[in-house]
Simulated scan of single mutants.
Amino acid sequence: MGNLFCTEHTIHRRFDLKGSSLGRSTDKPEEELDASTILKDLDLNFIFRLQKSWFQDFCRQVDRDCEFLEQERIMDYSLQGT
C-alpha cells in the first residue's frame, strides 16, 4: 500500500472507512487523539480541496482499487490523510 500523493507531510490522521454509520466513530475524546489513533467513518468531518489533476488521479486510483477488490471478492478500503 502506498500514498498516491508523494509529499513531505507527515500523516497525522488515519481513517478506517467502511461506508457505514453503525458503530463507526472513535470512542476517544479529541484531546486523546494522536497519530496512531485509527478514526472511523463518522469521525471524517473534513472538506477536501485538491488540484483538478490530483482529484482526477485520486478518482482513478479509487476506481482501480475498487475494481481489484471486487474481482477478489474483498470489501475493505482505507484512507489516510496528511
Rank of each mutant, 00 (worst) to 15 (best):
S20P: 00
F46C: 07
Q51P: 06
K28P: 01
R49D: 00
W54P: 03
S36N: 14
F5R: 01
H12Q: 10
S36H: 05
K52E: 14
Y77C: 13
N3V: 11
L42W: 09
L69F: 14
N45L: 08
T82Q: 09
L69W: 11
E8A: 13
L22N: 15
E72R: 07
T10E: 14
T37L: 11
D65H: 03
D43P: 02
F5K: 02
I38G: 06
K18W: 00
D27E: 02
D63N: 09
I47M: 08
I38E: 14
E72Y: 11
K40F: 05
F55N: 10
S20L: 02
F15Y: 13
R60N: 11
E31W: 15
R13Y: 01
G23Q: 07
F48L: 14
Q56R: 12
L50Y: 04
Q61F: 12
A35W: 00
I74T: 11
I74M: 09
T7I: 13
S21N: 09
Q71S: 12
E72W: 11
F58L: 11
R14K: 13
K28W: 00
T82D: 09
F48P: 02
S53N: 07
G19N: 06
D16K: 07
T7R: 07
L39G: 01
Q71L: 12
H9E: 12
G19K: 06
G23E: 06
C66F: 14
L33G: 03
D34C: 11
E70W: 04
